[in-house]
Amino acid sequence: MSAKASGVAAGSLAVDVTEVSRIFTGKKGASVAALDNVSLTVNPGEFVSLIGPSGCGKSTLMRLIADLDTPTSGTIEVFGQSARQARLNQSYGIAFQQAGLLPWRTVAGNIELPLELHGVAKPARKARSAELLDLVGLSDFAHHYPDQLSGGMQQRVAIARSLAESPRLLLMDEPFGALDEMTRERMQNELVRICGETGAAVVFVTHSIPEAVFLSDRVVVMSPRPGRIRDILSVRLGETGERGENLREESSFFQAVSQVRELLHGEVPVGARGVETR
């Protein structure tokens, strides 16, 4: 799924979540509170990760931002529009844990799909596909089919597809969760480079503390269900796109990983934190 920003209010936040709660009601009337009074803002071009224990509502919050579900209470805006209008205006791109590529379409065909669905002329589709294939380093695989690619390569195609219509926001729900550790780190390197080049804001769901720290400007730590924001760690480890492999060996990186781990376990007082490279 992908989208381009249209009808975007100048100077507006990429995401503005205000006092959002989500309660699910079961068949027998029992209710489950997935999210409770969550408020969060994401600035244009900012990379924000959501992390917390399983069942804390990370993916629920992502789905609400994407208008794949509706809050029980509270409001969500994307670039100054309601979540519903942002979806209709195709103001964001989405990537999930599974690449979700169509097996009967080539790599280029998968990337071009959202453009084709929205009536973009074939020459423009081809040009944009070629541009994105170069961006994700897969120019030589344009005419391959998904089953001819590794898992990491398939995810790169999915990311390229999510960027097809030049969105200013990417919503990513554990896109590297099914990959082995080495491939996952390579994909993290690719993602910070791509975000640096495109300037897109990102909301990123993950279970991995090192991944959240490496990728993010801020890490949002959520509590067990009902999901609340326990704390937010500001991670200032270099501009997006400039974080290299060596960052994972720096003391500031390990310090941030330790702080997120402590916040997840509730071992430090609540309050905004910051880690900077010296």
Results as ranks from 00 to 15, higher is better:
residue 4 K to T: 15
residue 6 S to G: 10
residue 7 G to E: 11
residue 7 G to M: 13
residue 7 G to Q: 09
residue 11 G to P: 12
residue 15 V to D: 05
residue 16 D to G: 00
residue 16 D to A: 07
residue 18 T to I: 14
residue 20 V to P: 07
residue 21 S to W: 00
residue 22 R to Q: 07
residue 23 I to N: 07
residue 25 T to N: 09
residue 27 K to T: 14
residue 27 K to Q: 14
residue 28 K to P: 05
residue 32 V to E: 12
residue 33 A to Y: 01
residue 35 L to V: 01
residue 36 D to G: 10
residue 39 S to K: 08
residue 39 S to L: 00
residue 39 S to E: 05
residue 43 N to V: 12
residue 45 G to A: 07
residue 46 E to C: 05
residue 48 V to I: 11
residue 51 I to H: 12
residue 59 S to N: 06
residue 64 L to H: 01
residue 68 L to R: 13
residue 69 D to P: 11
residue 72 T to I: 07
residue 73 S to E: 15
residue 77 E to T: 11
residue 79 F to S: 00
residue 82 S to H: 14
residue 82 S to K: 15
residue 87 R to E: 01
residue 94 I to Y: 14
residue 96 F to A: 02
residue 97 Q to S: 09
residue 98 Q to D: 12
residue 99 A to I: 04
residue 101 L to S: 10
residue 102 L to V: 13
residue 103 P to Y: 10
residue 103 P to A: 13
residue 104 W to K: 01
residue 108 A to L: 04
residue 109 G to N: 09
residue 115 L to V: 12
residue 117 L to S: 08
residue 117 L to D: 01
residue 120 V to H: 06
residue 126 K to G: 05
residue 127 A to C: 15
residue 129 S to N: 04
residue 134 D to H: 11
residue 134 D to I: 11
residue 135 L to P: 05
residue 136 V to T: 04
residue 141 F to P: 01
residue 148 Q to T: 07
residue 152 G to N: 11
residue 155 Q to H: 06
residue 157 V to S: 07
residue 166 S to M: 12
residue 169 L to W: 02
residue 169 L to E: 15
residue 173 D to G: 12
residue 174 E to P: 06
residue 174 E to F: 01
residue 175 P to M: 03
residue 177 G to D: 02
residue 179 L to Y: 08
residue 181 E to V: 13
residue 188 Q to Y: 03
residue 191 L to C: 03
residue 194 I to M: 01
residue 194 I to S: 01
residue 196 G to S: 08
residue 197 E to R: 11
residue 198 T to V: 04
residue 199 G to P: 06
residue 205 V to R: 05
residue 214 F to K: 06
residue 214 F to Q: 00
residue 214 F to D: 01
residue 217 D to Y: 01
residue 220 V to E: 00
residue 223 S to I: 09
residue 231 D to S: 12
residue 233 L to V: 15
residue 233 L to K: 01
residue 234 S to W: 10
residue 235 V to M: 00
residue 236 R to Y: 06
residue 237 L to Q: 02
residue 237 L to D: 00
residue 239 E to R: 15
residue 240 T to E: 02
residue 242 E to R: 14
residue 245 E to D: 11
residue 246 N to T: 10
residue 248 R to E: 02
residue 248 R to M: 08
residue 251 S to C: 09
residue 253 F to G: 02
residue 256 A to P: 14
residue 257 V to T: 15
residue 260 V to S: 09
residue 263 L to M: 15
residue 264 L to I: 13
residue 270 V to A: 14
residue 275 V to W: 09
residue 275 V to D: 04
residue 276 E to Y: 15
